[in-house]
């Protein structure tokens, strides 16, 4: 009994350690005082100031624009690639899968500087376009990894049946394959969207000339010390990414339970979602 109590107590202490900083940040975003230590009453002042801050609004615009465009383009290229990869065998398949894992395994900072070198080498001006290209690049692997398990579950005979009945390959793809792998495509899209909204390190190296996303704005504000506006912004960003990720993960667990075949891959991605690390980068684009 005592042992059981100690065990629970230990786990709860860890939860306090994990959640306290986030909760404090959220509470302070409603604090009327600039001094973080004292509570001066409830206010929405920081939220109002937040929505009047031009720099923040511009970076919000860029964040959303890059996220929408990069995840849409990555979904198209990634889905097409997954269909192609699914039909490959042996050495070629291994080679392409290994290349696909490079952005997942490489530290974010290396991916970031490598892309920066490429863009400067190609004489592209660092800004919106280069950030978009970088985001598409790191998003594609996650789309591929979401779609491939769905293709593995697919019954190949259906596609052949469609061809036998006179469908052109393109028509069969549209009417037979795409509808069946749709859940994987949507999951991949949402995944890519979330990663894009969340990215800091790679964006930091691949943008320039006044174009920055929310993470970069937070970073440059945080370097100058604590600012109640960032608390408000953080609270909103926490909630947005949280809601998106809950949707993605509910979808994934539904896929897994529903069709029984989601194999390990789905879980791998959902657990390896971030850090990020980042990177946090690190390995998983954690």
């Amino acid at each position: 009994m005592v042992m059981n109590f100690l065990k629970r107590f230990y786990v709860y202490i860890l939860f306090v350690f994990l959640y306290a900083p986030i909760v404090v940040l959220m509470v302070l975003s409603f604090n009327n005082s600039r001094l973080r230590g004292s509570w001066d009453g409830f206010t929405l002042r920081w939220y109002i100031e937040l929505f009047q801050d031009r720099q923040i609004l511009t970076s919000l615009y860029y964040t959303i624009a890059v996220a929408v465009l990069s995840s849409a383009i990555a979904t198209i290229i990634g889905t097409a690639a997954a269909i192609g990869i699914h039909n490959l065998h042996g050495f070629k398949k291994n080679l392409i899968m290994n290349v696909t894992y490079i952005p997942v395994l490489n530290p974010d900072i290396v991916t970031g500087v490598a892309l920066m070198i490429l863009f400067i080498f190609l004489r592209l001006r660092l800004g919106f376009l280069t950030m978009l290209l970088a985001h598409i690049t790191f998003n594609i692997p996650y789309v591929i990894l979401s779609v491939l398990p769905k293709l593995k579950q697919l019954n190949n005979n259906l596609y052949e049946a469609a061809l036998d009945l006179g469908a052109t390959p393109w028509y069969a793809l549209q009417k037979v394959i795409i509808p069946q792998i749709m859940p994987g495509i949507l999951t991949g899209f949402l995944f890519a969207f979330t990663l894009s909204i969340d990215d800091f390190v790679i964006s930091f190296f691949t943008t320039g000339s006044g174009v920055s996303n929310l993470s970069i704005t937070v970073f440059s504000m945080a370097r100058r010390g604590v600012n109640p506006k960032i608390n408000a912004l953080s609270t909103l960003m926490f909630l947005t990414v949280l809601i998106l990720l809950i949707i993605v993960n509910l979808r994934m667990s539904k896929d897994k339970n529903g069709k029984g075949g989601g194999n390990g891959k789905n879980k791998e991605i959902s657990l390896g979602a971030r850090d990020s690390s980042g990177g946090g980068g690190g390995l998983l684009r954690i």
């Binding site: 939860f15 900083p21 404090v24 940040l25 969340d198 800091f200 970073f219 953080s234 926490f238 946090g280």
Partner: peptide
């Protein structure tokens, strides 16, 4: 619940500690 914080923006999680640890932050209070 263990996974949730992992999904949140890494930069913001780090920033949260900045608020807690600074001179007149909550920890010192």
């Amino acid at each position: 619940l263990f996974m949730l914080p992992m999904w949140m923006n890494f930069l913001l999680r780090t920033y949260a500690w900045l608020t807690l640890l600074e001179k007149n932050g909550l920890v010192n209070m």
